Simulated scan of single mutants.
Amino acid sequence: MTRTETVAAFTDLYLPTVNGVTYTIQLWRDRWRTHRSEMPVVYPEMNGYDPGTNEFPIRSVRAPLYPQYRLGLPAVPDGLETPDLVHVHTPFTIGFTGIRFARKRDVPVVASYHTLLDDRASQHVSGNVLDGVKRTCRLYERSFFERVDHVTAPTAFARDHLLETVDADVDVTVVSNGIDTEFFRPVDPTSFCERYDLPTDRPLLGYTGRHGEEKNLEEAIKAVTGTGMTLVLGGDGPARDVLEKRAAESDADVRFLGFLEREELPAFYSALDVFVFPSPVETQGLVALEATACGTPVVAVNAGALTDSVIQGETGYRYQQGSIGDLQWAITRCLDEQDRLSDLCRRRRAMLSVEHSIGQLTSIYDSLE
């Protein structure tokens, strides 16, 4: 078994964009430095971010359909030395560049399955063409992932999707992206509640993250309508205006907090009685893990990766998508069992940690020749 020291990360998503992929790469880089050696990263150049040590931006163009993202031109930057292994995080131009780079340098290549492309397709097309677009996405994914030596998937759901739905002939290991449990921990939320004028005399439910149609947040608004509970929504996104309109039309106490600084998140999670996560399109759902690490039980839709990330009766409860009654039942169960569930959430912190994930990655890396 070889000892892997330097791992080069290739990704089409990176800073200053903030999402689950960029968060994971940052966290893995930070921990890999203390665990083994360096993890240089190759990414598309974007305005507003200056590269640091061992960060290699390449020229980029605006991505179609997602103007906030950039597609890197397929070129390896100068100065990147041959690593012991390449890890590609996205199946686009820079992902393919990483595979070609690894093959030319005769080093192993691992890929992470962060995003289900066929799920994203339904955000842009519908009707008769949707099935054809999904089939194309799966053929594309199969072609990409069958070029690498090993794949990591953040949940069993994502692994099964790649093997069964995409029908890729690959070796896959479930490796959670992991979270920083030193940072995400139960804290005193008093000052946070005072800053945002949050009530303390009624159940407080919440969500933070992207406000997109695919996140299904209208179900959370419907669930608190007429209940006397308060729903707080952190984050922002293209669906925010519609969500604010829905909240204003309903008999629901919904507070829109806007984008929260990362330093505020432990207090946000700790302030909640229940974290509500109705999104059916997750490959892991890191915010559910962050809430759990802060001792807050999660109510999640029984779909996608949340069937793995939220353990029924231990870290929260799941509900059937579209059933507001079922969602309200799950919220009530969490409130009734809050002390027990919160204790079980805290006990799972070690399993959620990025250190646990890095240990698994190390075993995979070292096993590849």
Rank of each mutant, 00 (worst) to 15 (best):
G258P: 01
E146W: 02
E214R: 03
E146R: 00
D308H: 10
R185T: 14
H87V: 11
F92G: 06
S37V: 06
V42L: 15
Q26C: 12
V224H: 04
D273M: 06
T2D: 07
F144N: 04
N177P: 01
L344D: 14
G234Q: 08
V172Q: 04
R103L: 14
G228L: 15
E263M: 00
D336V: 01
A239M: 03
L65K: 00
E369R: 13
D30S: 14
L117R: 00
V21H: 07
Y365I: 15
L65I: 10
S37C: 11
V166A: 07
T307N: 04
D12A: 13
R318L: 13
T34V: 14
E55G: 04
H150A: 13
T24Y: 07
V287P: 01
G295K: 07
V151C: 07
T152I: 13
D84F: 11
D339I: 04
V287W: 05
R159S: 11
V187R: 08
G98S: 10
G72R: 05
L13F: 12
T97S: 14
Q123L: 06
V301P: 02
H35T: 15
L27D: 07
T165L: 03
V174D: 06
S279A: 15
R340W: 01
S143W: 02
V287A: 13
I58P: 00
F268V: 09
L306D: 05
P16S: 15
L265S: 04
R346G: 15
D160G: 01
R349P: 03
D326P: 04
